[in-house]
Design a protein around this nucleic acid. Structure first.
Lengths: 147, 147
DNA sequence: TGTGAAACTGCATCGTC
DNA sequence: GACGATGCAGTTTCACA
């Protein structure tokens, strides 16, 4: 994990569909060398996958909320969570609440209906997202700013 | 936005580095046709980008937390947020808190140090992530399960 | 919009250092 | 670990439906 690996991670975090050739030009290294480094980063699990970022609003989902949840019935609640397409992220947390959910729904009404279904399992505290300042900031400091 | 577009979105959300040829085989359509649909989905903003998913723990970041934050000094707090590499996501929210942050740090100690810096701007309620059940569930119902 | 064919470009692989 | 060369695979483009 040297500076070049960090550059590769930074570039591919920005644009996962960049070609290896284009990367090899940016970092002034041969194409097979970059391919080999990429392969190793994937194998080590530093790169866990590649995802397209989809726009919720363009897909008719206009409401995003974070829901803190408290339940005594973890097993059933997690099964409910797996089966609920509204729940995009599901975390176990410390503190007075034991779960945190990121929920994406069409409207405020569909969020309300979802929360009512949740209340079979426990109680919640909901924080509706008004706007997103930024999301998914890179975990790696850029090798340098020139690329 | 027909069934085929949904299939494309579902596939590319799973693996953003899949080749167009491979996709065109999966959905039984010619490769130029898939290229054209992809181009349109990008242009319309349905696909907002492509990202590599990096493993925080493999990069030495072992602590993740969600922080609810209340400040009266929004402008300065947002500038602080932009400049803080610990803050991965930053949302404006409704309710008694006006921000929600996803924070990724090396250890509990570095999280603590970060929170102390935050307290120049207001007060917080912190929820430490113990484990992740799932993250980034697809926003599109699969066209069908056979792919 | 979708297709098939052809020219072009990028990638996997191998031998070399 | 990285490089250069090469054959194969994927992409772009275009005429046609």
């Amino acid at each position: 994990m040297d500076r070049i690996d960090h550059q590769i991670l930074s570039i591919i975090h920005e644009n996962a569909r960049i070609t290896v050739s284009e990367m090899s030009r940016k970092i002034a290294m041969s194409q097979p060398a970059v391919t080999e480094r990429l392969r190793r980063l994937e194998e080590q699990g530093v790169i866990a996958g590649y995802r397209a970022v989809l726009s919720p609003s363009k897909l008719g989902k206009h409401t995003t909320a974070f829901v803190l949840f408290k339940t005594n019935n973890c097993k059933e609640f997690e099964a409910f969570g797996e089966a609920s397409p509204e729940i995009v992220d599901l975390y176990r947390t410390s503190g007075e609440y034991n779960y945190l959910l990121k929920v994406v729904t069409a409207t405020g009404e569909t969020l309300e209906a979802f929360l009512e279904r949740c209340h079979a399992f426990g109680f919640s505290s909901t924080h509706v997202v008004l706007s997103t300042r930024f999301e998914d900031k890179s975990l790696v400091a850029d090798g340098d700013g020139s690329n």
